[in-house]
Design a protein around this nucleic acid. Structure first.
Lengths: 233, 233
DNA sequence: CAGCAAAATGCTGCATACAAAATACAAAAG
DNA sequence: CTTTTGTATTTTGTATGCAGCATTTTGCTG
């Protein structure tokens, strides 16, 4: 989502009952939450920015009521901060905050790695491998954006392979909080190459169901992640 | 909060500008969130219960708008589930969910223990010790409720001693989700005694700043916690 | 011209009002 | 007697309106 004149009402239509299946698709609340989340992650709403209900609602073509509900949701998620009588502002993370989050994320991924080696299905592992291969292709093509997205997807997928829903959930929250940071953190070629190499190790360990190795690599990967983004923060 | 005729509007008054300090105290949103959370934890709203906006709002003396905002907040926190076009229901956790949450909590507390041994101030440790002593007194007095609350406070305090805000935050969320379970889980005298003994070990390790030991005890404590509540789930 | 007081503006917070969807019920058809 | 369909009621979802607080601007005084 580029800034300047941002997308209009059309971008927020209630999902018009996609393909097959009678299942109710996304409600406005969800749509709004996702939309705002993206705006924050992609920098349309930078840290410290006040979420002006009237203005924002008008831009998105929604009244203040559902917008406020979405904002409260995001506040609980930790992306925005509620200031009594003064609305909500996009939360600003200090360098220490980021380091702390990465520390927790590291611990969670180490756990996820151990569990995944036991619990994951072969099919599940194959899917991660597919994501990885695609990511490497994007890396070779120099497509940072797609690389970034696949990178996130892989970590999310591993958390899910653990079979531990609570773990996957918390991991997701934390990863979301860090997305904005990682999104802007554009490391140089050599660091990028190192990250890809670590990913290669990860996948190999996962396929070998070597939980010690996988846990170790995931941990190392996140320690290095801090090195990669520390200047950007 | 006992069930039956529950407390009326009076219980939800906006905090009447407590003592000194010009700082704006709790807004209605926070009050509502806390109130609803307590109602869920203490069983006033049992799992599967639909949160009827009209009725609930009337009981609490609040209109639907802020109530809905609070519900959305709790949904993000994982205590209630939003069903499109059908409102919100109190989330029901399966035995596996609880076990999974405890697994993650264990990992987080082990991390918190390690960090706390390095980062905690002597004063902070002393506070935890005070909480512990008080808890033991309540235990000896057979006061389950106060014991339970102090128990929670101690774990929260240790997470905070880590100096890692993200860790303390996530730990808090997870602990809250588990509160309801632990609240109903009334173990027998022998298990209770074992739990107290483990706490004694914890405090000792913390005071000695023995991170290996503390981490180990915290981990063991939570594995045992699962044994203590597994039948209640 | 600087400093401060007071009004005016703008925004949030909460309540109410309206619209759409779901559920419950009843009647009719098989 | 069961099932289905149409209608009424209830409940959620969204919009609007109003009051209170915060901030800013304006006007007065030194």
């Amino acid at each position: 989502m580029q800034n300047g004149k941002m997308n209009e009402i059309t971008s927020l239509e209630r999902r018009p009952e996609g393909g097959p299946g009678p299942i109710r698709r996304t409600a406005l609340h969800d749509t709004l939450v996702n939309h705002l989340r993206d705006m924050i992650i992609e920098g349309d709403l930078s840290p410290g920015t006040r979420l002006h209900e009237g203005q924002l609602g008008e831009q998105l073509g929604v009244s203040r009521t559902p917008l406020r509900e979405a904002i409260k949701y995001l506040a609980s998620e930790g992306l925005v901060e509620l200031v009594p009588s003064r609305g909500a502002v996009v939360k600003r993370f200090s360098a220490k905050d980021v380091k702390d989050m990465l520390t927790v994320l590291q611990s969670l991924e180490e756990l996820a790695g151990r569990l995944a080696c036991e619990a994951a299905s072969d099919a599940g592992i194959a899917e991660v491998r597919a994501l990885h291969d695609e990511m490497v292709r994007r890396y070779r093509a120099g497509d940072r954006m797609q690389y970034y997205k696949l990178n996130q997807q892989i970590h999310t997928a591993i958390a899910q392979l653990s079979g531990n829903a609570a773990l996957a959930d918390i991991h997701g929250v934390l990863q979301t909080r860090l997305k904005r940071i990682r999104f802007v953190g554009h490391e140089g070629p050599e660091k990028w190459a190192a990250a890809v190499a670590e990913h290669e190790e990860m996948i190999a360990a996962l396929e070998a169901r070597d939980e010690v190795k996988l846990s170790e690599v995931l941990g190392r990967h996140l320690i290095n992640a801090w090195e990669r983004v520390r200047d950007s923060v």
